[in-house]
């Protein structure tokens, strides 16, 4: 039975602090490859940079289950050199432009520090302050003579830390999923063939998962991701009906998002597993968003698919926040469900 202790937290910290903007996932890929070395029967890096690892079970009548966790994160690319260590940049993935001003960033493979500043409040007018700061007016500033080049990627510079019962860091979406999948691979139950896909380019269109699912050709797929929790009070104190998920209520099971209608058999299998094991779970509110499952379920002739996510607040900002217990329960639920996974789960029709 896998558990989350200091070693796992240290791993999450390294993963969260690593920089792996969509299209340049090398730093996380390197950590993943090192962590799973010798723990799978077959490990390869495919044409897009996905890490595909297969751990065969030992029992008879095994289902081939694909577990997918994307390695990439939202961030920036330097696109023009304005001189004097100042660079124009583009946003990669969906980041609210209001999250950019006044932040420290890490640029390039060597994590060169830089900042995204903002016009001093003293020079702004009241009217100006009512409008968002346009992204094309912002620059990444490395200091005079700062070394970088167009094409370099950058991320927010927030170091990972624990705060009370919570975890705070950049890119918890989806290093939580990556760390979870590493633990599952290391503790794969013998009743399944575990096909682990550490995917690339999820944040710009589920691109890595698409080819990974085709290549792995699984019986079923599970995307392991992090999903937003909008569980803050509403401005007028009225009950807020649209929270997506809430921190502290356990792993979030997807029934429907914009990309996928989860296979009901898999949802039932997960909820039954949780109830049997006495583990908490919550149903993510059906709505927008999407995970690798959106690509997996449409692979080849179709794949039954579902998503299980760790709830986290403030996705795609400099500092997202999750509960350690939710992560633990996500890992526990996935593991216990896998141990209960038999062909009977998919026996009936969808």
């Amino acid at each position: 039975m896998p558990a989350i202790g200091n070693a796992q937290l240290k791993l999450l910290e390294r993963l969260s602090n690593a920089c792996a903007v969509s299209g340049d996932e090398g730093e996380v890929r390197k950590i993943v490859l090192a962590e799973i070395e010798g723990r799978a029967d077959e490990i390869k890096v495919d044409a897009l940079g996905n890490v595909l690892a297969i751990k065969k079970g030992s029992e008879r009548k095994r289902l081939r289950v694909m577990l997918s966790a994307h390695m990439d994160e939202v961030g920036f690319m330097l696109v023009a050199d304005d001189g004097e260590g100042i660079f124009r940049f583009e946003v990669i993935g969906s980041i609210d432009p209001r999250q950019l001003p006044g932040k420290a960033v890490l640029v390039g493979r060597d994590h060169t520090p830089g900042v995204i500043g903002a016009r001093p409040i003293h020079l702004t007018t009241a009217d100006e302050r009512k409008r968002a700061i346009p992204v094309d007016s912002l620059r990444i500033d490395l200091g005079p003579g700062g070394k970088a080049k167009p094409g370099d990627r950058a991320t927010f510079a927030t170091p990972f830390r624990r705060v009370g019962p919570s975890l705070l860091g950049k890119a918890l979406d989806n290093r939580l999923g990556v760390a979870t999948l590493i633990e599952l691979l290391r503790n794969a139950p013998p009743n399944v063939d575990l096909l682990a896909a550490f995917t690339v380019q999820e944040e710009i269109g589920l691109r890595g998962a698409k080819v990974a699912a085709f290549a792995l050709d699984p019986d079923l797929g599970i995307a392991v991701d992090a999903t937003p929790a909008h569980d803050q009070p509403s401005w007028d104190g009225e009950p807020a009906p649209f929270y997506n998920t809430r921190l502290g209520l356990g792993p979030a099971l997807y029934v429907a998002d914009r990309a996928t209608l989860s296979d009901p058999r898999l949802v039932r299998w997960l909820t039954d597993s949780a109830e049997a094991a006495g583990l908490p779970y919550q149903i993510r509110q059906p709505g927008g968003g999407g995970t690798d499952a959106g690509a997996i379920h449409r692979a080849r002739a179709g794949v039954p698919a579902v998503s299980v996510s760790v709830p986290h607040r403030y996705p795609h900002t400099a500092a997202s926040l999750a509960r350690l217990d939710d992560w633990k329960n996500t890992l526990a639920l996935l593991h216990t469900a896998l141990t209960r996974l038999t062909p009977a789960v998919l026996a009936g029709e969808r």
Partner: peptide, 17 residues
């Protein structure tokens, strides 16, 4: 934190909060 627009009065989908 900047709460989700769903938790704010109308008009803060893009404007500064």
């Amino acid at each position: 934190i900047q709460p989700s627009p769903r938790l704010l009065p109308p008009g803060f989908e893009e404007n500064p909060v």
